[in-house]
Design a protein around this nucleic acid. Structure first.
Lengths: 140, 140
DNA sequence: TGGATAAATAGAAATGATTTCTATTTATAC
DNA sequence: GTATAAATAGAAATCATTTCTATTTATCCA
């Protein structure tokens, strides 16, 4: 998925196409790893010396809501973000615990679990979030 | 699962059976909902006026590592904890987004997804964490 | 049962991530 | 080009979380 497609997603979500937003998406496209606000801020402050950390926080949240980024909880109990290559269809992501690379997992067999819950707990399942970790092909 | 069993889990993990730890487990047994450090601190400070918030943070982390508690990420981007009724066998938990009650889901069909990842990404899957939310039988 | 020992805790303090706020700038629609 | 609302900078506040040290306590063992 190229920058043009992400720009289209921004527009679809009524988010303006600003240099900051494009720059942050660009960093994620360049480095396929998950990153936190401060890491992005550090990587961008040369090109964008006036960038503020609050702006990074806000943009990350907006991009997550738009489906462009996925959020995950890191070992240090903080949130990291990574690019989602296909925001349109439901799927999951695999993160390498060593190099932090995030890869798409275009597969989900949650239906069985979901109907188990609806049947056994009589509950209505609304969302599920799966965080998968391990070692990628290169690091294993 | 009763207090005696949790005490046994503490011992198995070489954690001392202290009044604080028992009190925190007790609060979770009484309220079957997920809670954060400050909520527990508030609920306990009458019975344990000398309890400190850092102690609560530490105990929550220890009980999570021992498998007595499960951790989940709440909407406010903070971590909450809930009791795990069967720390021995792998399973998941369902949280009601309205009343925050946490229920056991003694089922997991992750194998299919796992072998999909190992085959397609040539990665080694080491762990997965599934957060399931919705409306419980009472709140739906 | 009582002392030895390491683990656990209180309490104060520091840390630092995250959020809030206001004035200014900028992307977009017309 | 201009109007408008959205986005941003920058400073400051907030507050969750962690660190540190002295003290207390659970547990082990004689």
């Amino acid at each position: 998925m190229g920058m043009e497609t992400y720009i289209q997603v921004l527009k679809n979500n009524r988010l303006k196409v600003t240099p900051r937003r494009k720059a942050i998406i660009g960093v994620f496209m360049k480095h396929g790893v998950r990153m936190g606000p401060y890491e992005l801020y550090e990587k961008l402050k040369r090109k964008l010396p006036k960038l503020g950390l609050p702006t990074v926080y806000r943009i990350l949240e907006e991009l997550k809501d738009a489906g462009i980024l996925v959020q995950s909880l890191a070992e240090d109990r903080r949130l990291r973000y990574a690019l989602c290559a296909c925001p349109d269809e439901h799927h999951h992501h695999f993160t390498c615990r060593k190099c932090k690379k995030v890869e798409e997992v275009e597969f989900c067999n949650f239906n069985g679990l979901s109907s188990f819950i609806e049947k056994n707990l009589n509950a209505k399942v609304e969302s599920h979030n799966l965080q998968i970790e391990g070692l990628c092909a290169r690091c294993r």
